[in-house]
Write a protein that binds this DNA or RNA. Structure first.
Lengths: 210, 210
DNA sequence: AAAATAATTAATCAAATGATTAAAACAAAA
DNA sequence: TTTTGTTTTAATCATTTGATTAATTATTTT
């Protein structure tokens, strides 16, 4: 007769079905192009239930966005702040983890970047990424590398753009790239797995180039 | 009394104002998030004029999309099919032209990639990029380079992804990257100009890496 | 079993939005 | 100046879409 028996039981299923459907549709089409009816249909529930559980399209979106941002930055953060790994190891882990994530959730980057653009401060304001990045273990190692002459003296943001560009761009450009190269989705994914080994190798040679 | 005096005169202005406004808003917000009223306001015209000149939001969008795709692929095509330039020179020209374009029209990539994703075949079907790319002067030079051992034997699509990623990604990730690096738009643009020299250098070292 | 609470549904509302219309303003031609 | 054709406007329409409501069904509690 524990009252709080309500907490674990209360059919997560419907609520969860809605959230999962919302994630799929929002990721695919973005906020503006998504109709609450699309989500309801994807979830196989009555439209009114969406508002019953989440109040509004905006509130539901906010939840999805927050979780997606977390998934995206979690990878960076944990890798970049590990004091025990070398800079080169960090590159390997970053690339590998990211590609693994994007093979499962390929729509996250375009979704995030599109939505962030229409609302940068709102969405990124609270997370103070700046501090996080500037004081990361990675940055210390990078600066040390430049000082000792092991790394060519280019702005660390160039480096960031390079690793992100090489890793993330193929997923953003997927449809166009497949078209250009005449590739199947299968072939594309194989190629992305190859990049887990290739990108770190390339980036390391770039670091030394002058 | 020349009848065709009507041809040069006929106030391009209103029609052009609408198209320019449409380009700005569509590029910024994409098709779904754009309201015809936004375009009318941006153009400083009555809403009905949009339909008077362009019939529908869809038709107006199709025009903007077609022109944007042309701008985007024109750069690639002209550079990649020049029989008189070396492969290395092609890289330099490609990167430099692209960055110049994107400094003026920074919203094109995210716009195109977002819209293409929701409608790949419709938008890319007619342009047969595949053929264009496979038979380009660039591809011949690339294959020759691999055979002669001057280029490491990686799939040319990896190379394409690399150059595009290094060049285009920073513009797609602009808001996030500025936030992470604590940069102003000014600083960002300076950095992009630096990349006109840096990317070709990096790419050339990557080509040889094994 | 009865009562109370929670979940679900069909119907409906109100606001937003793409498009049209009929009239007015303007320009060109006769 | 009158006539004709074009451009512009305000008002309105029809559909879409996010949200609510009132009634129904299912579940939990007493």
């Amino acid at each position: 007769m524990r009252q709080n028996k309500r907490l674990p039981v209360p059919d997560l299923s419907t609520e969860e079905k809605i959230k999962n459907a919302a994630r799929i549709i929002f990721h695919q089409k973005g906020f503006a192009a998504t109709r609450t009816r699309d989500i309801a249909e994807e979830a196989g529930i009555n439209l009114a239930l969406l508002n019953y559980y989440y109040r509004s399209k905006e509130k539901l979106f906010a939840i999805i966005m927050q979780e997606s941002l977390a998934a995206f930055f979690q990878t960076v953060s944990s890798v970049m702040n590990d004091e025990t790994t070398s800079l080169e190891k960090k590159i390997e882990l970053f690339v590998s983890n990211y590609i693994d994530l994007l093979l499962v959730e390929p729509d996250i980057p375009l979704f995030l970047l599109s939505e962030v653009r229409s609302n940068p401060d709102e969405l990124l304001g609270k997370l103070n990424i700046r501090e996080l990045f500037q004081h990361s273990a990675f940055m210390k190692q990078y600066r040390a590398g430049v000082e000792s002459g092991k790394i060519a003296p280019v702005h660390p943001m160039h480096f960031m753009m390079n690793v992100m560009g090489l890793t993330v761009f193929p997923f953003i450009g997927n449809p166009m790239l497949k078209m250009v190269g005449g590739m199947s989705q299968q072939q594309f994914e194989t190629m992305m797995k190859e990049r887990k080994a290739l990108i770190p190798k390339w980036v390391k040679t770039m670091l030394k180039a002058r």
